[in-house]
């Protein structure tokens, strides 16, 4: 049994590599196409990841401001804190007293030389709370909930910012997805042509194998090896280029002043998972391209 297996797998591989050599130029073109399409996929993934993490960072800073009814005393206003903390999805609650609000406004206007207290005579600002949601996606729902509570007359949050940020993320994902989809389609198509040619070159042999009583698996295995090998080769090359390119970018970027404003992802666990995805995608592409051709062109 063991010798059978060894002899047969030797056969599978020798047939597969004979085909790759015979198809020489096309094999090269296939590997290149897979490399290009998976490289684009990789770039898209890294881009989306970076933009998402950047936007997440922005969205994390979006806070809800809830203004306490002016009729409430300071004690009553402070008591609202516990109610807020009891809400679902609340991460942090900060009380801002009227005096603190005034101070911070004064600081903002100090450069213009105004003395607000003098101008206004009394402090018109209400007590308020700054609330942070544990999930930025929940900000809107949470804000509405707070607005419905007794004791608050007005709730503000960065509606526009939050919604815009998520729209941008969505757009980036869609656009990237379309480009990636098209290049992957091209890669599968080329792998398919490659396998189709290999099948064509060996059609007499395939017919004979069928007549002699070879199982379908025996006949198709060399083609799967060929298709998957080419695709994984392409994937490995794409991953190496991407890895090298990103590491280079990371090094250069951290030396610039932009790095603070727009930090790049440098979590290597996450990055290696990205490169792993490329290899898995290569495997899948190879399998898919081969399967399509084998199914269409090997019915004897």
């Amino acid at each position: 049994m063991k010798t059978t297996f060894r002899r047969q797998s030797a056969y599978y591989y020798s047939e597969a590599f004979k085909s790759i050599r015979r198809n020489g130029f096309l094999s090269l073109a296939t590997v290149t196409t897979v490399t290009v399409s998976l490289f684009i996929l990789g770039v898209a993934i890294l881009l989306v990841l970076n933009i998402s993490s950047y936007l997440q960072g922005l969205a994390d800073d979006v806070e809800i401001s809830a203004f306490v009814d002016q009729t409430y005393t300071d004690e009553q206003a402070l008591a609202l804190r516990d109610q807020l903390l009891r809400l679902n999805g609340v991460e942090e609650v900060d009380f801002v007293s009227r005096e603190e609000a005034m101070d911070s406004m004064q600081t903002r206007y100090s450069s213009s030389g105004y003395d607000l207290e003098e101008t206004l005579e009394s402090n018109p600002l209400p007590n308020s709370y700054r609330i942070k949601a544990s999930d930025p996606q929940n900000v809107q729902a949470l804000a509405q909930q707070i607005a419905g509570m007794e004791g608050f007359y007005r709730v503000n949050y960065g509606q526009d910012i939050v919604e815009k940020l998520f729209a941008i993320t969505k757009g980036v994902r869609w656009g990237g997805g379309c480009i990636v989809g098209m290049t992957i389609l091209g890669a599968v198509f080329l792998i398919g042509i490659n396998i189709r040619l290999s099948i064509f070159a060996r059609r007499k042999e395939i017919y004979l194998m069928k007549l002699i009583g070879a199982r379908d698996g025996f006949i198709t295995r060399p083609f799967y090896i060929e298709g998957i090998f080419l695709a994984v080769m392409g994937a490995i090359i794409a991953a190496i280029i991407l890895m090298g390119g990103y590491e280079f970018l990371l090094r250069e970027w951290t030396n610039t002043s932009y790095a603070m404003l727009f930090p790049l992802i440098s979590d290597h666990n996450l990055l290696f998972r990205c490169y792993g995805i490329l290899l898995a995608a290569g495997l899948l592409l190879g399998w898919l391209g081969t399967a399509i051709s084998v199914r269409r062109f090997m019915d004897v």
């Binding site: 059978t4 002899r7 004979l208 194998m209 002699i212 009583g213 025996f218």
Partner: peptide
């Protein structure tokens, strides 16, 4: 005849046993 031109007599005949999974011995 339907022989495989790139294989020897021996290989053409062995081919039929190999594709059904016989051991090399």
């Amino acid at each position: 005849f339907k022989l495989l031109e790139s294989r020897t007599v021996e290989e053409n005949i062995a081919f039929a046993m190999m594709v059904v999974g016989a051991s090399s011995r």
